[in-house]
Simulated scan of single mutants.
Amino acid sequence: MPPEAKSSGDDTPVCCPLYHEAVEMIGRRWTGAIVEVLLQRHGSLRYTEISHAVPQLSDRLLSERLKELEQRGVVEREVSPGPPVQVAYGLTDMGRSLEPAVRELKEWARRWLN
C-alpha cells in the first residue's frame, strides 16, 4: 500500500511521508526563494546573481541551501573553466518540475496574504 494510502484504521487523517518530506525540503528557510528565482531565469545564474535577487539572504545560508538542493537533485552546479573560473547554478528537470507548485503557491499568497 503506498504511503499516502495508509490509514490508522479509523477516520483519523494520516500525513503522507513523501508530502511531508517535499514540504520540509522546499519550505526550509530561503529555499523556496532560491528555487523561485532560478525558475524565473529559465537557465543558470551565477552565485552573485542569486545573492542579488534575494538580498536578505546571507552568503552562508545561500551556500548551504545550494549544496542541499544540489544533493537532492533539484539544482545542478556548472563550473566554467577560467580564468577566472565561473560557477553557475541551474535547475535540473526535477527542479523545473516544481514550477506549477511554485506558481500556485504564489497565486495563493497574492490572494490571501496581500
Rank of each mutant, 00 (worst) to 15 (best):
I26R: 00
S97G: 12
V102I: 14
A22W: 12
M1I: 08
K6M: 14
N114T: 14
E36M: 02
Q40W: 13
S44C: 10
V75Q: 04
R65S: 13
W112D: 12
R46S: 05
S44F: 00
Y47D: 03
C16S: 15
N114S: 15
A101I: 11
A109I: 12
D11C: 09
A88E: 10
E99L: 09
L98E: 03
I34P: 03
Y47H: 08
P13G: 02
E99M: 07
E4L: 07
N114P: 09
Q71C: 00
V23T: 08
M94L: 15
C15W: 07
C15G: 03
R72G: 07
S44R: 08
A22T: 11
H20W: 07
P83F: 02
Q71H: 02
V102C: 08
V54C: 04
A5V: 09
P84N: 08
E21Q: 06
L18C: 09
L18K: 13
V35I: 15
E36F: 05
S80T: 06
E36L: 06
L45E: 01
E64Q: 11
R46N: 01
W112T: 12
I34D: 04
R46Q: 06
R46M: 02
A33R: 02
R28E: 13
M94N: 15
V54W: 04
G90L: 08
G9F: 01
N114A: 15
A22D: 07
E36N: 10
E70T: 15
D10G: 13
W30V: 10
R96V: 04
L38V: 04
E70S: 13
A109E: 14
A5K: 08
R72Y: 12
W30Q: 00
E104P: 00
P55T: 11
Q71W: 00
A109D: 09
R110H: 14
A22S: 12
A101E: 05
D59I: 02
L62W: 07
D11W: 11
P81V: 07
D59S: 10
R28Y: 00
E70A: 14
E68C: 09
E21G: 07
A22Q: 10
G95L: 03
S58G: 12
S63C: 15
A33C: 01
T92D: 06
V35A: 01
R60L: 11
R60Y: 05
I26M: 05
A88S: 14
H52R: 15
D59E: 06
V79F: 00
G9T: 05
Y47L: 08
G9E: 03
V87E: 07
Q40S: 08
D10K: 06
S97E: 03
Q40D: 09
G73T: 13
L105Q: 00
R110V: 11
I50C: 01
R65F: 15
R111L: 14
L98T: 12
R110M: 14
K106H: 11
L62G: 06
P81F: 01
P100T: 04
V102S: 03
Q71K: 05
L91T: 09
L38N: 02
E70V: 14
Q86D: 04
L39G: 02
